[in-house]
């Protein structure tokens, strides 16, 4: 039995795909059989972040429409065993995904994997609702910024009502907060919402906190999920997040502003 986790946010550009790629990679590095599915039909990008864009032959829509088998569409990750990617289609047909089709794909994957990570599109339309419908847990990616927090709250409303667990009256979806692009120095200046405020407003448990980091852009440039950059703050923060997802207690890091001394400012060089 696989655990189905949707990575969602409502707002676009907050780091859903980066997080889905990083968390899926982290789970696979921890030995879990993991598949990460791109639900953003028409705007596929997970393949780029995972660095497998040139190996895409078939996609999720092909599988659902019976044009390809699931095994033909699944891409095996080059770097980590146990990790597979199921890309989205570039079709402009918004109705290409069906609830029954998605259910069938997830049921098949269920037998072979420990974790199924669903990378949701932005918005609250059909694609986003399909990505969350069958989930057991949700990772709500939120930036410390008003529109992102508000949209996250909207998504929490949908998770509580428009999912299979909600409709069947089963145990509710586990909701986890993942704060990304956190800048402790701006928080210290009072210019950015702090993590306690965000947690208090959204009232869900904090799974992880990813600092704003140069490593994230570097990772996406190279098509190597940032979890592989284990010297970087963001890479370590995602590894911590994955550990918590696996039930380990890991203290929070990278959330406090470290004032730099004059010397380290002068000779600190480039932070990796």
């Amino acid at each position: 039995m696989a655990k189905i986790i949707v990575v969602t946010s409502g707002k676009g550009g907050v780091g859903k795909t980066t997080s889905a790629a990083a968390i899926a990679t982290g789970l696979a590095l921890r030995g879990k059989k993991t598949v990460v599915i791109d639900f953003d039909v028409g705007l596929r990008n997970l393949d780029l972040i995972m660095g497998c864009e040139r190996r895409v032959v078939y996609d999720l829509v092909n599988v659902i429409q019976g044009e390809a088998g699931l095994n033909q569409a699944l891409i095996r990750d080059k770097r980590v065993d146990n990790l597979h990617i199921l890309p989205a289609s570039q079709t402009r047909d918004k109705d290409a995904l069906t609830l029954e089709g998605v259910e069938k794909v997830l049921d098949t994957l269920n037998k072979d994997f420990d974790f199924i990570i669903c990378d949701s599109p932005a918005g609250i339309e059909r694609g986003a609702q399909l990505a969350m419908y069958f989930a057991d847990a949700a990772i709500v990616v939120t930036n410390p910024e008003v529109s992102s927090v508000r949209d996250s709250d909207r998504i929490l409303g949908l998770l509580a009502s428009k999912t299979r667990r909600a409709e069947r009256g089963e145990d509710p979806i586990q909701e986890h907060l993942l704060i990304t692009r956190y800048n402790p120095s701006r928080v210290d200046l009072g210019d950015m919402l702090n993590l306690e405020d965000i947690r208090e407003i959204l009232a869900i448990d904090l799974l992880g906190l990813i600092p704003e980091s140069e490593a994230v852009l570097r990772a996406s440039n190279q098509g190597v999920p940032v979890t592989h950059d284990d010297d970087s703050d963001a890479g370590q923060a995602y590894a911590d997040t994955v550990a918590r997802l696996l039930g380990e207690e890991v203290p929070l890091r990278f959330h406090e502003y470290q004032k730099k001394s004059l010397l380290s400012r002068m000779f600190g060089g480039v932070r990796r």
């Binding site: 508000r150 210019d191 919402l193 702090n194 405020d197 959204l202």
Partner: peptide, 28 residues
């Protein structure tokens, strides 16, 4: 200057608390 700047994050928090409370009454 620092105290003046403290404000923007707390303004954000207050605004969010109000709008989120309103959103939640409409949930479901």
């Amino acid at each position: 200057l620092k105290r003046e700047r403290k404000k923007s994050a707390s303004v954000a928090k207050e605004r969010l608390q109000i709008i989120v409370a309103h959103q939640r009454t409409q949930r479901g």
